[in-house]
Amino acid sequence: MWESYVLPTSVAQALAVLQAYQGRARLIAGGTDLIPKMKAGKRRIDCLVDISRIKGLQGIEEDGGDIRIGAAVTHAEVASSRLIRERATVLAEAALSVGSPLVRNQGTVAGNVVSAQPAGDAAVALFALEASIEITGQNGVRLVPIAELYQDVGISRVDSTAEIVTAIHFKGSRGNQASAFARLAQRQALALPMLNTAVVVAIRDGRFAEARIVVAPVAPLPLRARQAEQGLKDAPVSADRIVEAAEAAAQESRPRDSLLRGSAEYRRNMVRVLVRRALEQATTRLIGKVA
């Protein structure tokens, strides 16, 4: 499958190996997506460059409200981080629903983004957090909004043979913001999402100051339900307005019939249910029960 496996200790060293192999080496972090693909013969490469030991890619940090998650941080670390649970609840909940404990102990949140699956749980949460992805290449560091990173189903604009996702950045929630994640799957563990949704809401003086609603997989990439968001903006906080927003999100969704995930008709109905639950949950976290 590959003839060499290297464990660089710095980003510069990893980039140098990638450059030396001129496209025939690629990065691996947790490997929970990549290795099954390679075992199935879907990828062919000469060298794997394992970035999971690089010190600068570890850890979750906060600086003035900005949260940075290093590229080697696993789903398990994110799910159990007190900072993430308090300031980006939606991401902690999403990370906890990925795969199984064994997968979460290795698979990284950054890898979930690079895999660019239309409903990667952690990535869907990062869409709602409007995260930026830090990419380091030979020409330096650039920050790319997560929505611009998705090229197509399973294809991101990160070139894993030449550049490295080094971190994920987003703003942690402030006092008047809360978030939530909801998911529909055939089992409670080890099951792909039939649907998932991530929401962030802000409330000021009894009104929704802001709502961000992401639904997947109802399009080639996670969908921002903009009409539902607009409908909530400046609206009084009430159970009825949440139901209306959930209905709008269902109307915006374009789920496909899928043997794996269920019929389009069923899933559109379930978008309404999941978005309502997630909005209620996030709102409840801010103001207690919604009337």
């Binding site: 464990l7 691996i28 099954p36 394992d50 997968v103």
Partner: peptide, 20 residues
Amino acid sequence: AVLLDGKAINSCITPAMKAM
């Protein structure tokens, strides 16, 4: 499943070199 530094992992999709 085996424990790698105390954490349970799937050793069938873990490159051996990760245990270095």
